[in-house]
């Protein structure tokens, strides 16, 4: 028995078919007598460069225990699997049973992207408000808001800025 780490980049467009596909993968692994110690589901990440015209990929990292003669079979199966964009099978000294930095990183970047989208939305709304001719009303509103909530402070200052420009 040897310790292996199998990293896979899977087609990101599987969506609802992903879970059945993952089960299929795991059944292939167990057929070839690979013991699945841990599966790190990293999630969909932006690829550093396009692979097979995909700009995103679903990363999976398996920690496996298996026998060397079966490696060729596994490589062959992965090679002819159209859903696998890229695979890497390496031997490692010690199996880990926790998520690596990658999972954390993808979560963080996902959150950042969501926050950015949210901010952009807010900005659009405020700019629309500022554009309308009821700027005086906005001003009085903003002074009220200042007293009530901190979050809305940003909005209010933005309104003031636009007023200064005009």
């Amino acid at each position: 028995m040897k310790n292996y780490e199998l990293a896979l980049i899977i087609n990101p467009d599987l969506a609802s078919r992903f879970n059945p596909y993952k089960e299929h993968l795991e059944s292939v692994l167990s057929e070839l007598d690979f013991k699945n110690i841990y599966c790190e589901n990293v999630g969909i990440r932006e690829l550093a460069y396009p692979i097979k015209e995909f700009t995103k990929g679903h990363y999976l990292i398996y920690q496996l225990e298996g026998n060397p003669p079966k490696i060729a079979d596994l490589e062959n199966k992965l090679k002819y699997d159209n859903s696998v964009l890229r695979h890497l099978l390496i031997t490692i000294d010690e199996l880990s049973s926790s998520d690596s930095f990658l999972t954390q990183d993808t979560r963080d970047s996902k959150k950042l992207a969501e926050e950015k989208a949210h901010e952009a939305k807010l900005k659009n709304e405020t700019s629309i408000n500022a554009d309308s001719d009821t700027q005086i009303k906005d001003n009085s509103k903003s002074t009220q808001l200042k007293e009530t909530e901190e979050n809305d402070n940003d909005e209010a200052t933005e309104n003031n800025n636009t007023k200064d420009e005009s």
Binding site: A7, I9, R45, L47, A48, Y49, P50, I51, G57, Y59, R86, L88, I90, L102
Partner: peptide, 18 residues
């Protein structure tokens, strides 16, 4: 080099914005 193979890191900055 392994990270590059798995598209975690670019080989060059020329291919990142295609």
């Amino acid at each position: 080099k392994v990270a590059r193979f798995l598209a975690l890191i670019p080989y060059t900055d020329k291919q990142s914005r295609v």
